[in-house]
């Protein structure tokens, strides 16, 4: 029951000794992995239209970027520590996907990347994320609205992840090896996101009267933009997504809400406000290095 502790000393007294000098390779940060596609062949395979490939990557990348931003807003605000950690994890996964996809889009079609003053050290992924205006973002409206309560967040997450998982599974066979690799990595991540959303969806549906009431209200809030998500045409996965969504609704014991899809517009009013916040520091320092 009593363990000798003296052998910990040598190891743990020194944790802050290595800040100056020494071997930098033990640290992940500050070792220049700025280019997320470092070491990959990013030439566009013969027979593929570079502009189409870039558009596809940008749409998928912007979805991930915008939705990651929303989920990160839960940080320090979640119902419990476990949920705070889980939502941050999902936001981090999507942020990682966004970085890869934006970098892929830029490599395939350099003309997409905003031009900054000469000598700007801002990398291409950040030029795309922080120096494009709202009307140039290609994400679906589904990911833009504010988070709402936990029931709205879970409902939106379940639908988003179910759709994205189906899309990424399809894209694993894409002729562009870079996109195929990004998709393969993403499948593992988004499978967890869908599982997390599904488990909470059922829990809220069958938890208390209040959680069920809030979940039913969330369906009314989230479903009007769902049809646009399915219709984005990145890949036609409508049928397989609907099978999964119907299954979760059945297990949860809730009916699909009777709501009309919202009519066409490029973006919601929420996007430009989100971008104003996201881009404010980067835009104030176009020659800055971070």
């Amino acid at each position: 029951m009593n363990h000798h502790v003296n052998d910990y000393d040598a190891d743990h007294e020194s944790v802050y000794d290595g800040l100056l000098g020494g071997d930098a390779s033990q640290w992940a940060f500050g070792t220049d992995f700025e280019d997320p596609l470092a070491g990959m062949d990013t030439s566009v395979p013969a027979g593929l239209d570079a502009a189409e490939l870039a558009d596809l990557c940008l749409r998928l990348g912007d979805d991930a970027l915008v939705y990651s931003h929303r989920l990160a807003e839960w940080c320090s605000n979640a119902p419990d520590l476990e949920e705070d950690i889980a939502l941050a994890n999902i936001a981090l996964d999507l942020l990682g996907q966004a970085r890869l996809l934006l970098a892929r889009a830029a490599a395939a079609s350099p003309g997409l990347v905003p031009v900054l003053p000469e000598g700007s050290p801002v990398p291409v992924e950040d030029r795309l994320a922080f120096f494009r205006d709202d009307h140039d973002f290609r994400n679906v409206r589904f990911v833009e609205p504010e988070n709402g309560d936990f029931a709205v967040t879970i409902t939106r997450l379940l639908l988003f992840a179910t759709h994205r998982l189906a899309v990424l599974e399809r894209l694993r066979a894409h002729p562009d090896a870079v996109l195929a690799a990004i998709a393969a990595k993403g499948v593992k991540e988004v499978a967890y996101h869908r599982d997390y959303g599904g488990r909470w969806f059922v829990t809220l549906a069958q938890g208390t009267d209040e959680s069920r009431r809030r979940l039913l209200a969330a369906l009314e809030t989230v479903f009007p933009l769902y049809d646009e998500l399915l219709a984005t045409g990145v890949a036609d996965v409508r049928d397989e997504v609907e099978v999964v969504v119907d299954q979760v609704l059945a297990v949860a014991g809730v009916e699909r809400p009777d709501v009309k899809p919202i009519g066409g517009a490029r973006h919601t009013e929420a996007l430009s406000r989100m971008l104003a916040e996201m881009q404010v520091v980067a835009r104030a320092h176009p020659l800055g290095v971070w």
């Binding site: 700025e34 970027l65 931003h69 990160a72 807003e73 981090l92 942020l95 990682g96 966004a98 970085r99 934006l102 801002v122 990398p123 992924e125 950040d126 994320a129 922080f130 916040e277 996201m278 404010v280 520091v281 980067a282 320092h285 800055g288 971070w290």
Partner: peptide, 10 residues
């Protein structure tokens, strides 16, 4: 929400 690069945000 205002991190100035995607790497810094992550």
């Amino acid at each position: 929400t205002r991190a100035p690069s995607l790497r810094r945000k992550a």
